[in-house]
Design a protein around this nucleic acid. Structure first.
Length: 513
RNA sequence: CGGGCUAUGGCGCAGUCUGGUAGCGCGCUACACUGGGGGUGUAGAGGCCGUGGGUUCGAAUCCCGCUAGCCCGACCA
């Protein structure tokens, strides 16, 4: 029996969206639930989220933020306060209108039905985001400039009634963090917005091995109610863009709508400048699409639920005990004596009673960064068989056990680095500079066109027209030091492709999720 | 929310046109052989066919409603 050519069918090349779903299934990350548009996140997937959560949380606290929790249900009237904001979310709100159920027995079938009753005087909206309800709290909490800045973060679930759900990328309910801060001055609030933006960028790079493009959204693409939206944009393997995180400067829009005001140093009353920022479980979808291959998931080591999987090879019954003991001993030493980025290495000994080959492929599909096999021969030779998920599935290296213990953190880092380099090379190879409108139009006719970098100084209306025509959008206007190749930026410099204005800023265009 | 497709044991599917109460592959369980590998054999377990109603002596199969999923569009983290 010959093994399948790839563990996942179809391949990325054959059918990318279907491949994505099959990877999630094969890696046992999540599944659709009975509730429309919602997913069940399974342990192997939820473990990733827990690690993202833990590692981001440290960084939020290092930068002075505190966690708090606000209600899931938002009074409808709160949402009406900021007009643009309300309009932006109006079409995707789940609304709670009743507070009890009444059991009614159908006289014909004899079945009991639960009928909503007890209609609420004012409906509640299940939070699609919490600006309004947190803003209301801020209004109570802030009286003096001495109460500022207010730096709050919330880990929560939110609900947006999306018309086209996709596991992790766009689900009706999703998990995220939302930071909300209030400041004395515009300059300070913008500084916060930019600081978090950089934090997201470096988190994506250093923890998820995703080379994002940090930039500013154009007016058309801004968060409803924001004065400025900063974004990190990732390119995944079908060359589409994913907005992986956003940081908004909300100006005084929300503080005026909700009366977040304070006595200033000069004695007058002033409105606070607020920000909000968030990343969600979409990060998991992004990393799946960024790194995985035709054999399944490939996890960046720092957010891998398990980093090292030890697979006992037990060909003979009489050596079985010894092999298992050796596996457990190695696992213990890894847990106690080694660490990677200040966390003990996460090790799992897979002692399930099943075929070795199946076991191996199971962990290949689940994307475990390192697989280690230990058999009777290895015990004698004091070696371990090391296999890496960033290399071919059949590639193995027999390594001295002590050497392995010494170098595990380096191997994990090397895997991280190789994923990042590969993703960056892919991204950079698929962003093309374009300085003529003719080339611009021609570019979007191909199947997977990648991104374009162009000089741009058009109006929002002009941008909208081009976007609709080619089903694209300006993903962002990259900030300084966005990490894009110098050659690309200089090739994309010049006069606006549409208006001809000289030395216009560079815009990145692409199709997106 | 518009347009198209789909819904049968854990997964993938056949059966639906030509109604007669369910079948295949994989997986699962047991045993045996095997053993750096997603192996082989034998024997088993498991579904009343998404859901509600209708037609009929009889429905997975025909008709209507609903729900969910997928793809394309508009919208969005």
């Amino acid at each position: 029996m010959s093994a399948a050519k790839t563990a996942i069918t179809p391949t990325r090349h054959e059918d990318f969206p279907e491949w994505y779903q099959q990877v999630i299934k094969a890696a046992d990350l999540a599944e659709n639930s009975e509730t429309r548009g919602c997913m069940v996140i399974k342990p192997w997937g939820y473990g990733i989220w827990e690690l993202i959560q833990k590692q981001l949380d440290v960084r939020f606290k290092e930068t002075g933020h505190q966690n708090a929790y606000f209600p899931l249900l938002i009074p409808l009237s709160y949402l009406e306060k900021e007009a643009e904001h309300a309009e932006g979310f109006a079409t995707e709100c789940a609304v709670v209108t009743h507070h009890r159920l009444e059991a009614v027995k159908d006289p014909e079938t004899g079945k009991t039905k639960m009928i909503p009753t007890g209609e609420l005087a004012e409906p509640y909206v299940i939070r699609p985001t919490s600006e309004t309800i947190i803003g209301a709290a801020f209004a109570r909490w802030v009286q003096s400039y001495r109460d500022l800045p207010l730096l709050i973060n919330q880990w929560a679930n939110v609900m947006r009634w999306e018309m086209r759900p996709r596991l992790f990328l766009r689900t009706a309910e999703f998990l995220w963090q939302e930071g909300h801060t209030a400041h004395e001055s515009k300059a300070e609030a913008i500084k916060e917005t930019e600081m978090i933006h950089r934090l997201y960028e470096t988190f994506a790079r250093d923890h998820l091995a995703i080379p994002v493009v940090p930039g500013e959204k154009t007016e058309n693409e801004r968060f409803p109610g924001a004065d400025m939206t900063l974004t990190i944009e990732a390119m995944v393997q079908d060359k589409k863009a994913i907005q992986a995180g956003t940081s908004h400067y909300l100006g005084q829009n929300f503080s005026k709508a909700q009366n977040i005001c304070f006595a200033s140093r000069e004695g007058g009353q002033e409105f606070a400048h607020t920000t909000s920022w968030g990343v969600s479980t979409r990060l998991i979808g992004t990393l799946i699409m960024a790194h995985s291959d035709d054999d399944g998931l490939v996890l960046p080591p720092r957010v891998a639920t398990q980093q090292v999987i030890i697979i006992p090879v037990t060909p003979k019954e009489d050596s079985r005990e010894a092999v298992l003991a050796a596996c457990n001993a190695l696992a213990e030493r890894l847990r106690k004596k080694t660490s990677y980025h200040d966390d003990p290495i996460r090790v799992h000994v897979d002692n399930r009673d099943m075929q070795g080959g199946q076991k191996k492929w199971d962990w290949v599909k689940k994307g475990a960064p390192i697989r280690v096999e230990i058999g009777p021969r290895d015990i004698e030779s004091r070696k371990v068989c090391v296999q890496r998920r960033d290399r071919a599935a059949n590639e193995k290296e027999f390594m001295d056990k002590e050497e392995f213990l010494q170098t595990v953190p380096n191997i994990l880092q090397d895997i991280h680095d190789s994923l990042l380099v590969k993703a960056r090379e892919f991204r950079d190879a698929n962003i093309h500079a374009c300085t003529s409108l003719e080339d611009f139009h021609a570019h979007w006719s191909s199947e997977n066109p990648g991104w374009l970098a162009t000089p741009w100084a058009g109006t929002p209306e002009e941008e909208d027209e081009l976007s609709k025509k080619h089903k694209i959008a300006i993903r962002c206007m990259p900030i300084k030091d966005a990490g894009l190749p110098e050659a690309l930026l200089s090739a994309a410099a010049g006069a606006c492709i549409l208006t001809g204005k000289q030395s216009s800023p560079v815009a990145i265009w692409g199709r997106s999720y």
